[in-house]
Amino acid sequence: MHNFNYHRPNNVADAVTALGGAGDGKIIAGGMTLVPTLKQRLAAPSDLIDLNGIADLKGIKAESDGITIGAMTRHAEVAASSLVKSAIPALAELAELIGDRQVRNRGTIGGSLANNDPAADYPAAILGLGATVRTNKREIAADDFFQGLFETALEEGEIITAVHFPKPEKAAYRKFAQPASRFALIGVFVAKTKGGIRVAVTGGGNGVFRATDIETALAANFTPAAAKGVKLDPADFNGDLHGTPEYRAALVSTMAARAVEAC
């Protein structure tokens, strides 16, 4: 790890100021990706702006038609939250599947979204539920937020403050874990929402995406067999040591079917 200047603001405005004043500043939330990256010397920011001192970014609350989760809320808090469990149990279950106990007690929902790892779990829930990402500047719809491998709609100086999830009629997440890392080799989030059926897939390629063929099939017939019957094109998927494109494509249909069954 190289040396850096460390800032710990207690409000978002100060964080933005610190970020603006830094030569090559980087925001740190839970640090579950950034700290290993720093330790491996793959990143060497001049300044780290730590959001852990900002009380306003933490917590879970009920809001109009759903729940709102502060950006600095830990995965373990979401997993254990009675509010989340009663409103959107699939979201609590997903949080319980992230990483290991240590990661869940440190990692945050805002950090996961801003990083947008192509095999992360949370992006599937945000996209699958049609959630809204709130920042210090605006609100961004899930469909606009994720823009490919580690890319998001966030601009310079923009910090996620919370995520708002509308309550779905039904939802479930099914994850096939990559055996070594236990990130999602394929994770599928299926939700019946006011806006229709949404199926979000993580782990498949260059970032979370909606499996529209499966959405169409499920809109016509919301059964596991309908999901299973959809054959996706392997050309749209990545391959690596743990899964060929064909395997990943097949797993999407299988995991979608299992998610429907669990709905």
Partner: peptide
């Protein structure tokens, strides 16, 4: 679960961490 894999051409270790080497 376990296997050590090198890239056959470059000789780089592809399972160089617990992200890819399954304990």
């Amino acid at each position: 679960l376990e296997r050590c894999v090198y890239d056959e051409d470059s000789g780089q270790l592809l399972t160089g961490s617990y992200m890819d080497y399954t304990m």
